[in-house]
Design a binder for these strands. Structure first.
Lengths: 346, 346
DNA sequence: ACCCGGACTTGGATCGATCCAGAGGAACCG
DNA sequence: CGGTTCCTCTGGATCGATCCAAGTCCGGGT
């Protein structure tokens, strides 16, 4: 069962070690180590000599040895949540890209791992205890997700992309995007263009993110003295749900515009419009959320709220650095504002 | 004796080591090591005793130490190519997911890193030489991409997702999807439904992948004795290009169906159809390639060629295991067949 | 002439697991 | 009964870099 193969593949060329460099430069190992990690400690001519030796030999420090000694791996773990086919994964994709990019500049690499089976916690433990990663980036801190609590209990260093919605005791650093501000932006945009009956299609009530986004819509509506009664629908995040919900809303309340909690739902609205021969953007306005691939490619372009994932990644990495530098630091949260990408549907 | 300093300032909780387990179980370190890596070597009662000690202490082997000794990291490196906004990244996303999942079962984790700047090779070198990864998975082996050649020269273990198109000397393992078979499938599907003028919109001639996919279309056409003259267009992979190319083709050759080298191009065709008040699937058929998010969500559903990325990932990992087990093995290539996902547009 | 502190450098110990060579028994064999 | 083999298990050495405590060198102060 657990008989993993112990076969070892050697790197064909024997990599030079610190000692090799030291010998060549005529200094001690420690001096070479300092030349790499604390150049300020060396006299300039010694530094130059060592650096030349390093260059000539093509020396690169051995990670495993360094990791062992320093008890750090310079890796951050990121769990890939199971793919839900049909649900927009673009967000994660963009975020991962940004994260990898930003991490590199901070001297970190990203280690991907997958949750195995039903228990989302499995996998974290081994990686942490085996010192495979220094910290985690946690992405789905939705209601009831035990990851944050669990990680806190284990004193595992982590930064969350997503607010600790209902965990009052949470003291961990997090970065999130102000979803309500996004939908408010979207709704105002529609109201400014003359719409008065703007409908909402969002997620089920137990989704904190969904309720947050909904609140932006409702705030914008009430701000202008408009009623939201009968204009909201809460469904699952799927194409079919969006389609059905929009059909129902059109029949019952005749809204002239839709704001949706996701691009997937917005696409559902577009289906309904197509079914009825209505033109998105001309007859009925539609706004999605996430600025996914689909939003960019569909005709005539889906107006959508775009999360500043690049900035999120930067903030996450910064938090990570702070966290690892001073473990007992006071945790901080950061809320970033999304933008509205206007296209043909609104 | 084992006089480990109790005044550790770094990490409050000292993870138990092999020696701790050994002491508790009343055996030597080596025996514990064997219990973990080669259970067969132990007498069953000893094994049980050690396993109990492991469980009681919650022992997890330290990766860094193991990596140092065995000169292996059990990590595979995957380079994230720069994001091209607007181009379907769904393929990579799905592939990465599958790869992470499959790797886990093989005892590997995936290390993401990013190409920095213009040189796609930078990054590989450091990771390899610093023994940060055991091997690489290379994803874009398109024409002129020097990665494969470079990696071969360095004798870096790697498996490619993608054929070594024009590198006759290539001896590395690879896995690829038969794009021509996919477009052939798509074209036949259209021909079977009565279409005779099936147009092609693909990539520029210097793209080997593009030419391969094109060949599937042309093969299927000629097979039925149909001419392809004036029915093909080669453009950049963008929405606008697809839109323009399809408009031009409709004007010049009046095709009743389009087969495209990508979903992005296919979406361009849908734009043209929308511009002209034509209904996809009813007036003009359209088939894309990659079965991206967009294909699934757009109205009325874009028929598309789907790559078996899960199988690709499995094959890649298998190759990786073989490669690392027997470095001098004869390289093999594997070509998998895509499928056609039929939706509303065809 | 002697001590002092700062700048710079050094060798030994160490991180934790695995490799290696060999020891101790029990079983087997002539 | 001694010798051989197989099965288990052991302790020292090792991987390569960093931590640590201490050493050398040097100019300045008394």
């Amino acid at each position: 069962m657990d008989s993993r193969s112990r076969t070892v593949t050697r790197i064909p060329v024997n990599a030079p070690t610190l000692a090799d460099v030291a010998e060549r430069a005529g200094v001690s190992r420690q001096t070479v180590s300092n030349a790499v990690n604390n150049p300020d400690l060396l006299r300039s001519d010694t530094l130059l000599r060592v650096q030349r030796a390093i260059g000539e030999l093509g020396y690169v420090p051995n990670r495993a040895a360094r990791n062992l000694r320093t008890r750090a791996s310079h890796l951050v773990g990121l769990r890939m949540s199971p793919v839900l086919e049909g649900v927009a994964t673009t967000v994660m994709d963009r975020f991962v890209h940004s994260l990898v990019w930003t991490s590199r500049e901070a001297g970190y690499h990203v280690l991907l791992f997958s949750g195995e089976g039903p228990d989302p916690l499995e996998g974290y433990d081994d990686l942490l205890r085996s010192t495979a990663v220094d910290a985690f980036v946690v992405t789905d801190t939705y209601l009831g997700n035990p990851q944050a609590v669990w990680l806190r209990e284990r004193r595992a260093p982590f930064v969350a992309f997503g607010r600790p919605w209902d965990d009052v005791e949470a003291r961990h650093p997090w970065v999130d995007v102000d979803g309500a501000a996004g939908t408010e932006l979207a709704t105002r945009h529609l109201l400014d263009r003359g719409h008065t009956k703007v409908a909402w299609i969002g997620w089920r009530k137990d989704s904190r993110i969904g309720e947050d986004r909904r609140s932006g819509w409702s705030r914008a509506m009430h701000e202008r003295g408009l009623s939201t009664t009968g204009l909201a629908s809460r469904v699952e995040d799927s194409l079919g749900s969006g389609r059905d919900a929009s059909a129902h809303l059109l029949d019952e309340a005749q809204p002239s515009a839709f704001v949706c909690a996701s691009d997937t739902l917005a696409m559902g609205v577009l289906h309904t419009l197509a079914d009825r021969g209505l033109h998105p953007g001309r007859d009925v306005a539609v706004v999605g959320f996430d600025d996914s691939q689909v939003a960019q490619l569909v005709h005539p372009g889906l107006t959508s709220v775009r999360q500043p994932l690049e900035e999120v990644a930067i903030a996450v990495v910064r938090s990570l650095e702070d966290l690892l530098a001073t473990p007992s630091q006071v945790a901080d949260g950061l809320l970033l504002s999304p933008t509205l990408v206007v296209r043909g549907t609104a």
